[in-house]
Design a protein around this nucleic acid. Structure first.
Lengths: 200, 200, 200, 200
DNA sequence: TATGAATGAGTATTCATTCAT
DNA sequence: TATGAATGAATACTCATTCAT
C-alpha cells in the first residue's frame, strides 16, 4: 500500500503550492505540477476540474491551515497587548514558514483568473481579514484599542505584515523574524512617533 | 496637426496602462493595447521591443510621475507630523487617482515577467521605498520618530497604504480617501492602541 | 486497426518529406505538414519539439534509408569497375525514387536553420561521403583506381551525381536514368577525354 | 561629392552579396542589408522593387562578373587539354575568390523565392552551363573529347566544381586550390580509373 | 481510478513593404 | 532622390483540456 488516497491529494496540493509560488499562476504549467507531484497530468484533472480550481484549492487549503494554526495557538488569556503581540508573532512565523502560500497570497490575487475562482480566493482572504478584525474589535470593546474603523484597521494590519514578510522573503538576511515582529508590534501599539509618554 | 511624436508615445503608454491594469500582464493582449492606442500592432513593436519592455516602460513612467508629483507637493516647512500627514494624504490621493498604475504596481510584480524587466521595475519600486525612508529618517533625526529600523518602517508604511488603497479601489463606497488618510496617519503617529497619555 | 504508433510517426515524417521538398524549409508551414499528415499541429510538437527538429528527423531518416538500401544492394563480388557502375546506378536510382529527400538534401543545407540541427544533417551527409570514400579506397588499394585524394574524389563523385539528378528532376524528359548512369560512369572510369587506348 | 550614383548602387549590391551569402535568402533582412550598405531601408526599395529583385540583381551581377572574367582569361590558343585545365583552374579560382556569390549560387536556388525571380536566376545559371557546354562541344568537334551528351557533361563538370569548391569553403585547410584543380582535371581528362594505357 | 497521447484555440513576434515628407 | 516611421499579414509555438484505454 504505497499511498493512501488522501496522501496523493496532499502530494498534489503540496506540489501545486511549490510550483504556483515559484512561477505564479500563469507561468505554472500543469505538466510541471503533475511531474512534481509524481502523477500523470490526467490525474490532476481527475481530481480538480481545471487549473483555476487547483489553484483555488491550493490557496484555500494553505490559508485554512494558517488560520487553524493561529487559532490553536491563541486560545490564551493573555493581557490584550501581549495577546496582540502574540497574534502578530504567530502570523509572521506562519507566513514565513508557509512561504509558498504567502507568496501566492501576496502576489497572485491579480487579474487573469476565472472570476468564479477569484471570488473563492477573495472569500478566504476576507475570512482571514474578518478573523483579524474580530480580534481588534475585542480589543476595542475592552478599551485597549482606539476606536478606528475596525475593518480598515484589519486591512492595515494585514498590509503591514504582508509587506514586511514579502520583504523578508526577498531579503532573508537583512532582518530576523523577531525584528519584524517588534517593528509591527511597535507600530501597532504606539505608532512611529516617539513615545510621548516619556514626558517629552 | 494630428499628433506629435511625443503624443503618440504617450498614447501608447496610456493605453497600455489602462489595459495592463484591467487585465494584468499576462492577460493583456498586444492586439488590444494597439487598438486602444489607435496604432497598428507593428507600431508597438517599432517603439518597444517586447511586451515586457512595454510593461516596464508603462510602470516606470507611471511611478516616476507619482514620485515627481509627491516631491513637487512636499517642498514644505510644515512641522514634522503635519509633514507626515501631508505625505500620506498625497500618496493616497495620487495612488487613487493613478489607479491604473497602482493596480499594476500592487498586483503584477509577480512571477512570469522577463527577469531583466522585473529588475527594472523592482528598481523603481525601491527608489520609491528609499524616498519614503528618507522622509522617515529626517523625522528620526529631528527626534520626532522612534528609532525603528527605518527601512522596515518605510516598507511598512508603503504596505499599509498599498493595502488600504487596494481595498478602497475594490470597495470605493465603504470609506472616503480622507478616512484612509486618517487611519494611516493615526496608526503611524500613535498606533492602534488607545492613547495612554490620556491617563487611562 | 486504424494506426499503430509507428505508423503515425511514419505518416508525419512522410508528410514532412513531401512538404519540405516542395516548399523548402522556410516556406514549409507546420500547419500544412500537420494537415498532410492528418494530425493536429499540436501532435507535431508533441513528437518533435520544433520545426528544425522535425526537419532534421526527416532528412536523417531519408538518408539513412537510402544508405541502407545501397548497402543492401551492394554486397556483391563483382569486378571492381562493375561494382563502381552498380554503385552509381544504385545511388542514382535511389536518389530519383526518393526525390523528396534528394531535393531537400541538395537544396536546403543552406542558411537559416538552427545550428544544432544543421550539424546533425551535416553529420549524416558526411557519413554518406565517408561511405562513398570507403568504396573508392577499396578500389585504390586493389589497384583499380588512380591514387587521387580519396576524400576529394568522393566529394566529386557525389557532386556529379547530385548535379545530374537535380538536373534530371527539373527536366525529367531530357535524359533517362540510364543515360545519367552511363554519363557518370564514363566520366568516372575514363574521363571526358576521348579514350586514347583506342590507339589514337 | 562623396559618392556617385553608381557607387551607391555598387555598395548596395556588395552589401547584399555579403549578407545574402552569410544568412541565405530567407534569413537575410532588408534592415541588415540597408545598414551594411550605409543607406536607409527606403533606398533599397527605391532602387529595387523587392527583396527578390535585389537578390536576383545580386546573383546575376556576380555570375556575370565571373563569366566575363573567365572569357577574358581564356582568349587563348592553347592545346585543348591545356585549355580545359585552364578553364577549370580559372573557374575554381573565381569561385573561391567570389565566395559570397558562390555560396548563394550553390545553396540558394532552392524553394521559396518568387517564381519570376527564380526564373531569372535559373536563366543566368543556364547561361553559365551553356558557356561550359560550348567549350566542351568545341573539344568534341576537334576530336579531343568523347561524344558524351554535351549538356549532361557540362552539368557534371559544374557539379564537380561546385561540390569541391563548397567543400573547400567549408574546410579551407584540407586542400589547396591547386589540389582541387588537379583533382577535377584528372577526373575530367582520364577518370578515376588507373590509366590502363600504361599497360598494367 | 489513472494515464498520457492528441488536440487546437490563442498570441507574441517578425519583417517586407509603403508612403508622407 | 532618399528617408524611416508605420503597417499588418503571416506563423511558430504553448499549454490547458479531453478521452480512449
Amino acid at each position: 500500500m504505497p499511498k493512501t488516497n488522501a496522501e496523493k491529494q496532499e502530494n498534489i496540493i503540496k506540489a501545486a503550492g511549490i510550483v504556483f509560488s515559484q512561477k505564479g499562476f500563469h507561468q505554472a504549467r500543469m505538466d510541471e505540477i503533475a511531474e512534481a507531484a509524481g502523477v500523470a497530468k490526467g490525474t490532476l484533472y481527475y481530481n480538480y476540474s481545471s487549473k483555476s480550481k487547483l489553484f483555488a484549492a491550493t490557496v484555500t487549503c494553505g490559508l485554512n491551515r494558517i488560520m487553524a494554526a493561529i487559532e490553536a495557538e491563541l486560545a490564551s488569556d493573555l493581557p490584550f497587548l501581549d495577546h496582540l503581540r502574540a497574534i502578530v508573532a504567530t502570523i509572521i512565523r506562519l507566513y514565513i514558514s508557509n512561504k509558498e502560500v504567502t507568496r501566492i497570497y501576496a502576489n497572485e490575487m491579480s487579474s487573469g483568473i476565472e472570476d468564479e475562482v477569484r471570488s473563492e480566493i477573495k472569500a478566504v482572504r476576507e475570512q482571514f481579514t474578518a478573523f483579524v478584525e474580530a480580534q481588534l474589535q475585542t480589543g476595542q470593546e475592552k478599551g485597549y484599542l482606539a476606536p478606528l474603523p475596525s475593518h480598515l484597521s484589519a486591512v492595515a494590519v494585514i498590509g503591514i505584515i504582508d509587506a514586511l514578510c514579502s520583504h523578508h522573503l526577498e531579503h532573508p538576511d537583512l532582518h530576523s523574524p523577531d525584528e519584524l515582529t517588534d517593528t509591527v508590534f511597535t507600530i501597532l501599539s504606539s505608532g512611529l512617533a516617539r513615545n510621548r509618554q516619556a514626558g517629552e
